[in-house]
Design a binder for these strands. Sequence first.
DNA 1: CGATAATTTGACCGATTGGTAAACATTACA
DNA 2: TGTAATGTTTACCAATCGGTCAAATTATCG
Lengths: 218, 218
Amino acid sequence: MAIPRAAKTQRRTRIQEEKEEQILEAALDVFSVSGFRGSTIDQIAEVAGMSKPNLLYYFRTKEAMHRALIDRVLDTWLEPLRAFDADGNPESEIRSYIRRKLEMARDFPRESRLFANEMLQGAPHVEDELKGPLKELVDEKAEVIRSWAKAGKIAKCDPYHLIFSIWSTTQHYADFDVQVRAVLGQEHAGAGRFEDAARFLEQLFIDGLKVKCVPNAS
Amino acid sequence: MAIPRAAKTQRRTRIQEEKEEQILEAALDVFSVSGFRGSTIDQIAEVAGMSKPNLLYYFRTKEAMHRALIDRVLDTWLEPLRAFDADGNPESEIRSYIRRKLEMARDFPRESRLFANEMLQGAPHVEDELKGPLKELVDEKAEVIRSWAKAGKIAKCDPYHLIFSIWSTTQHYADFDVQVRAVLGQEHAGAGRFEDAARFLEQLFIDGLKVKCVPNAS
DNA sequence: CGATAATTTGACCGATTGGTAAACATTACA
DNA sequence: TGTAATGTTTACCAATCGGTCAAATTATCG
């Protein structure tokens, strides 16, 4: 008798490890484009190169697959924000945060789209994570930014909307990739667009926050 | 015998006018949340308060409904960018463009999400509009911005990425509304968040582009 | 009013959906 | 090697999908 997912022995076999990886990879392909409702198990099965019942042997439902995928990706996705350091100096921290986020938009566009799809649908599967861990992390970093402003290191500004604007501008290059390519045209839609974006955004945020214009405080 | 959509008389009846409006309104509700693939005719029919065959009497296929919806919304959506005036002065033009886009995110979030969904899925239904009319419009406005930079009225910057960043930051408040609310928490997620966003974004872009720091040219 | 066109609906169709049952194949391990 | 656990597949299910059809209902207008 086959007991799906973690049988008698609580340890996962090599095959489980491999196949679950394979499935989540395919699921990311599909969910990130069509969203939860618009994706089908058959699609995922085809991309994964295995039969539908075989998928369902590892993940009992479509929801379970989506859930597992979100859980796995969420940590990675928030890493750049976690790396945001209170002890660093504002300019380099903001610069590297923008760069890191842009690199993720370039290297992991599917992950970005997965979350975007989830948000558009009202975050029915991750609302708790948003209100819990995410909010706490943002609150913490917002406090850092506020302290910088108080110390006169950057211009006074709403730290939450600053974070939102960095999120949105960078993720835009993953989520709206088709639009960006279409508008830039063939000449400028090459890989260099991420460099151009980085240059522009760094300039915008550094100057916009007057990071360097302020005399060294303390 | 009933000939669907524009019968013998080429003029549309009052009922046609009303029902089509009613259907597109419902379709906007549904498509904007679930995307094209994730939405069903039955859902739309239920929201519209009419039977499924009745919907299909006015729009022969799901695609036709989506198409009509996109067409209707696209014009409205690009209006703020069209209003972007070359003869105006940079500061007020950029300020009012940001305000207008934020107002649209506030007042027409479903329209914003409809497009966002379409982009995430690779724009299978609107790619031509992106490469054609949209690109031309952006090219034109980018030229305006470039001329401002050349005249020393604003800092030198990539006009395309400037436009992208205004799009993304403003639409973020519609597309990622759940996330914004979750992170801001109950205290700050009220209607005032749009005012806060406007203040922040205006400051960011005006200062970031050094609009006022530059001595009056010519 | 009467008649013709426009509108609406219930019943239905084949295809696809998420998911199951059980037979079959493979692996791990004593 | 044998055998029990694990992995895979074929066949299938009820529900839902997009869409059709013909009959019934309603609006329009002379």
